[in-house]
């Protein structure tokens, strides 16, 4: 824990919590513009959240503490991840927590809690959403861990700060086949974990096509606001992870105000750019059938395995 890390952690907490709805707003605007509409403006998710926090809190009959605690757990796992992963600075706020495996497991824990809350409602939609979500989670884990493997081999560690430092020291490594393959695999993982097209349509109204939405049909008011905030933050975190792992330039290496400003701006720019690309891609694609999603995830898994193989065989035994 050093000054750089702690400053970074505080900045990240503020920027990601406050700025994640902005990311959602930008993505919706990009979609709107490409569809020929005008769109509500990038600040609309903030207005939505502000209004939701003012609404009535509801306790549906038959639900238990798990239903009430799940939004808190989801926010907690996302905030903890946002604080410890090196996005803005190259050091982490809490070194022992900045392990790639630990971060991935934390994010999975948030999803699992939400799935339990969905089952707790006792409705068929809740169970359906939970069932689909954990199936996708189960199939995304192998890709995630094997990609972590591929990325940590050149850096010699799964510690995120070490991986970022290794990439900063040797920028050419990003263009290696291992890195490129891992990047594609992790992009597919990001799409699957955050529930974007082609895995899941976040704007659908047809319950039988829902995965993430079906789990939150019963949530209202402040609970819903927390979940929507946590979902935007998760997207921010995943895009930020992609940026830190594959394009860490601009990251602050010293706690001077200038470096921190550049680091924050670079992080924001990369995340917004990534989100815009995702949103633009969504205009050109349709959601694939639920039972075709495993094929997509299996393909990304093969890419991750190819990344590990190439990191060993092409780089030589080092």
């Amino acid at each position: 824990m050093n000054a750089l890390g702690i400053t970074g952690g505080v900045i990240q907490a503020v920027v990601i919590t406050g700025g994640a709805p902005l990311l959602t707003g930008v993505m919706r605007q990009v979609r709107a513009k490409l569809e020929g509409r005008k769109g509500p403006g990038v600040g609309q998710p903030w207005r939505d959240l502000r209004k939701q926090f003012r609404k009535e809190a509801v306790a549906p009959e038959g639900t238990s503490e798990i239903f009430r605690v799940a939004p808190l757990a989801l926010v907690a796992t996302t905030v903890v991840t946002a604080v410890v992963v090196p996005f803005v600075t190259s050091a982490s706020a809490v070194e022992p927590m900045a392990d790639l495996f630990a971060v991935v497991a934390l994010l999975a824990m948030g999803t699992a809690t939400l799935a339990l809350a969905a089952i707790d409602t006792g409705t068929a939609f809740g169970g359906m959403g939970a069932s689909r979500e954990v199936t996708i989670l189960a199939l995304v884990e192998p890709t995630l861990l094997v990609s972590i493997f591929a990325l940590s081999v050149p850096a010699g560690s799964t510690n995120l700060a070490a991986i970022v430092a290794a990439t900063l020291n040797d920028p050419g490594r990003v263009l290696s086949p291992a890195s490129m393959l891992a990047a594609i695999a992790l992009t597919v993982v990001t799409v699957a974990e955050t529930g974007r097209i082609p895995v899941d349509n976040p704007a659908t109204h047809l319950e039988l096509t829902m995965v993430h939405e079906a789990m939150i049909l019963e949530y209202a008011g402040p609970d819903l606001a927390l979940i929507e905030l946590a979902s935007s933050m998760r997207l921010c975190v995943f895009l930020g992870l992609l940026a830190s792992l594959f394009a860490p330039w601009g990251i602050a290496a010293s706690p001077t105000p200038l470096a921190l400003a550049i680091g924050t701006a670079a992080f924001a720019a990369k995340v917004v750019a990534g989100g815009a690309v995702l949103a633009a891609a969504e205009v050109f694609m349709a959601k694939i059938r639920l039972f075709r999603v495993p094929e997509l995830l299996a393909g990304s898994f093969l890419l991750a395995v190819a990344a590990v193989a190439s990191s060993y065989f092409l780089a030589g035994a080092s």
Binding site: A32, R37, K38, G39, Q44, M210, Y219
Partner: peptide, 21 residues
């Protein structure tokens, strides 16, 4: 739809009444 685009005024259709105002 795209021609009148009611979403630009802050209105949005949602699936569940719990999410609605």
């Amino acid at each position: 739809g795209p021609v009148y685009d009611a979403e630009r005024y802050g209105a949005r259709l949602v699936a569940s009444p719990r999410h609605a105002d």
